[in-house]
Every structure is written in structure tokens, then in C-alpha cells.
Design a protein around this nucleic acid. Structure first.
Lengths: 129, 129
DNA sequence: ATAGGTGCAAACAGTTTGCATGTAT
DNA sequence: ATACATGCAAACTGTTTGCACCTAT
């Protein structure tokens, strides 16, 4: 499928590049609306979906949370969610042996790990925002 | 709050006891409806909530999935979701050092780990259902 | 008898879709 | 020029709530 470079799609891509962390559709809307006044939520959903289809974005699913999206192509990693500001951050690396937690009979294909706590900003270390 | 032992609440508790694995509200409805014909989904939600409040159930949140609920009081553990039948199973134990994945500045309070793959039944080992 | 629970339908939030209009190409 | 994208509103799904009726105590 041919994909046009509309103002809204550019703004959405920039939102991710500038945020440097996984974003929810709501966060994308907020961030991109500062560049495209009348941006609608449906357009955010449609563009995020097409960016995922194009392989430019990857979906980040979190327990009990609305999906986040991050720029694709990164190595295997997991995420951290701040219990105070709800923002999601990328962690690096993983631990070996996680898949061994399953008993005989189960075949494990992948895993997801999420850490929760307080992010550096909410922790007191420079609330920049 | 006083809590009555209605037919529907008893049926819901039994659904969990008989299933032996975390259940979604939809699964609870299906299972409990075989005992209480006209059970409504709102009643399931209300009873599940009150069982959680009473401490009899614990909420199990999974990435990109609707919440499951399990009988409370178990030791720290994680879950397995079958990618074929979508059912969720309980794993036992955990691995040390998971929280070390966070960089300096983050304070980790807890974590969630979910393994994905194929459950024993879907794996071929006796599709009992 | 009566406070609390149930069932149904309406209300809600997040997400998706239909359609007339707008716009990259 | 025209096929694809947008914005708005309606539709959908999972969950919650209002309300008249029901029932465990």
C-alpha cells in the first residue's frame, strides 16, 4: 500500500521520535496536536496502525493498560511503568532462564516482563517533565 | 459490608474452585450459567469485584488482555497464556534478580512476568477440554 | 420486613468504521 | 484528476451504573 506523507502522519512520527519512550494513542494525540491543530483520535489510531504495519512502530502491551507503541527494530527488551505518572520507559536487555518457569507440558515461545515503581523524575531526581 | 450467599455468588465461587486457573469475566459467566440459568454479566462483575474486595479473589492483569481473576492467597507467582486457546495458567515460583533490569534512578517495587506458548492440551498431550 | 442482590437496559471509555470532504501525488 | 487520508459521528466491546423487582436473613 502506498503511504502519503500527510501533515498528521509526519506529526505522529515526530511525536515518537521526540518522546523517546513508548506512547499511548492519547499521548500521541496530545503531542501531535501541538503541530496539527485539528488532529482527530481516529487519525491517530489509523496512522499508528499503518506505522505498525509498515514496521516503523511496534506495539507494547502492558497488563491492565491501554497499548503503547514504540519505534520498532530494537533488540529484545522489556519495560518499566511508573506507578506515579503512568509513563512507560524502555529497559535494556533481559535475563536468561525466564522460560524455565513453565512446567513440563508447556512449550514457551516468548515472554513479557514489566517492572513497576517510580521513574527517575517522580523519584525526585529533577522533575523536568 | 454484609455479604449474602446468593445462588449466583455461590455458583461464581464454585466456577473458580472447579476451574483451577485464572478466569475472565466471560469464562465465569459461561461456567456459572450452567448452574444459574439467567445469570447476567453485570452480576458477574459485581460479585467478582466484591470477592476481590473481600480478599477471596485476586486480579490477574495480562498484557493486551481483559483481566483474569484467581483465588487469592497464593505465594508470589506468574502466569502462562496459551496462544492457541487463550486460557491462562498459574506458574510457580519466580527468578531472582529481575528487578535489576532497571537502570539507576528507577526504584522498582514489583514486577509482572507472563510466558506465552502452547499449553499441554493444545500441545497435543490429550485435548481433554 | 427489609437491606442487599439481581437482571435488564442505558451509560461509559477505548477503539474501529462509514461517509462526505479534503489533499498529496 | 483521483486515490488515499482526514474529521466527525455512529458503531462496537468490555465494564459500570440506575432502577424496579427479588430474596436471603
Amino acid at each position: 500500500m502506498i503511504t502519503r506523507n500527510t501533515r498528521q502522519k509526519v506529526a505522529i512520527r515526530e511525536a515518537f521520535e521526540e518522546a523517546g519512550r513508548p506512547l499511548s494513542t492519547g499521548e500521541v494525540l496530545d503531542l501531535a496536536q501541538s503541530k496539527v491543530e485539528k488532529l482527530g483520535i481516529a487519525t491517530v489510531y489509523r496512522n499508528v496502525k499503518s506505522l505498525v504495519d509498515e514496521g516503523w512502530l511496534a506495539t507494547v502491551e502492558l497488563p491492565g493498560e491501554t497499548s503503547r507503541y514504540e519505534i520498532a527494530g530494537k533488540d529484545h527488551h522489556h519495560h518499566f511503568q511508573c506507578e506515579s505518572c503512568s509513563r512507560v520507559f524502555e529497559l535494556h536487555g533481559c535475563l536468561p532462564g525466564l522460560d524455565r518457569l513453565a512446567e513440563t507440558g508447556y512449550s514457551v515461545r516468548r515472554h513479557e516482563l514489566v517492572l513497576y515503581g517510580s521513574c527517575p523524575e517522580c523519584n525526585g531526581n529533577r522533575p523536568a517533565r
